[in-house]
Design a protein around this nucleic acid. Structure first.
Lengths: 217, 217
DNA sequence: GTCTATAGATGGATAGAC
DNA sequence: GTCTATCCATCTATAGAC
């Protein structure tokens, strides 16, 4: 059966990974990974300080030697997630050529692969942002806005150049963004697609959305 | 500025509405609406029994004369949301003709309009399902699966009939479903589109996704 | 940095009067 | 059905020893 049904619970069978290089070393990193898994499965308010500490194997009081408050742990996770998204999309935009279709493909591929590579982080970054104070959420929102502008700029360019047939640029941007964002909710080891297959398919979807003939036949 | 930026907090300026006919009368209905607003904004674990009671204007103990536990309030909301989705999609499928493109358009329009008409309910139904026990979540999941099968059946029919150019039916179904599902996250009074404009646009997106020539031009 | 112990607040839920 | 009062578990966070 080729089902790809929705899971009532959030993903659990997914490796708890954080982007390389940016993960803090030592106990701080272990706290971050434990919190990532628990926040993804139960939500910020559904996972307690004691739950996180138990998962790390330390006392709950020890956690406060690394983070001043529970909210700071969530804030760092959400910031990391958005930084990785922005980083990859900027990189993709820079590596792509001048063709709007090629640029759009690169951006969509980057967005999808961030969600397949770090589904738990994407879940938390997208679903638990409301648990942060406006000040704590601001950095992530700024990064998200940058990524959004990258996509909108490509859509605008392609539309004015005649490469795209787009009736409404902002709405098309929302649609393309929505496609990639939900990948984190269903991508995992229990479904038959590889990360590259999903990326290829979603690039094709995005190109069809903008009315662009497929570049590879 | 025609921005449609993302909101850090979940929607608040949206009328708290439940589908007609199915909403319980009296205090029970008021509890349901209060819980809907609070669960949508703060999440199930982020809103307390006392918060809900305060919003209704009753004592927190009174709530237990109407619901045996906090989880039952959430379970009823999520069930209502999924029932409305299933009801509208079945209705749309029945009213549409035999043409696969027409059927797909009807299903997508129905899905989008459920999310524009009851964005808070859709948010809670999609984001807080993990807070329910498997038994409490089962009815909603069954309804969701029915709605999903309606969409997949149309995609299959259109693909085999040659009306659609679809490389991967399940993945295309996920993509179309993702489009409509996220409408609840951004649709509201602070953006320039009407519900009909969004529905029309997303129907167009879906038809492009399946490689179908637009029926109206 | 890590622990034990605990403060102080808040959580879901119940007892019983009216 | 609604209230007051309360039980008891759990929560975030802190104090202070090692």
């Amino acid at each position: 059966m080729t089902q790809t049904s929705w899971d009532p619970r959030r993903l659990t069978a997914v490796a708890v990974e954080l982007p390389e290089g940016v993960t803090p070393p030592g106990t701080r990193g272990r706290i971050l990974r434990a919190a990532l898994r628990l926040f993804a499965e139960y939500g910020f308010h559904g996972a307690s300080i004691r739950d996180i500490a138990r998962e790390v194997g330390i006392n709950s009081a020890t956690l406060y030697a690394h983070y001043p408050a529970k909210e700071h742990v969530l804030a760092e996770l959400i910031r990391l997630g958005h930084e990785e998204l922005r980083r990859r999309m900027v990189e993709a935009a820079g590596a792509a050529g001048d063709d709007p279709a090629e640029q759009l493909a690169a951006l969509v591929r980057a967005q999808v692969l961030v969600h397949t590579d770090y589904p738990l982080l994407a879940l938390v970054a997208n679903h638990e942002l409301h648990a942060l104070s406006p000040e704590s959420a601001a950095p992530a929102l700024a990064l998200r806005e940058e990524a959004r502008q990258l996509l909108l700029a490509v859509l605008e360019r392609g539309a004015t150049a005649g490469a795209f047939d787009v009736a409404d640029v902002p709405l098309t941007g929302i649609a393309i963004g929505s496609l990639g964002m939900r990948v984190a909710n269903w991508f995992g080891p229990d479904q038959p697609y590889t990360r590259e297959q999903v990326a290829d398919a979603f690039v094709g979807f995005a190109l069809r959305l903008v009315g662009s003939p497929l570049p590879r036949g």
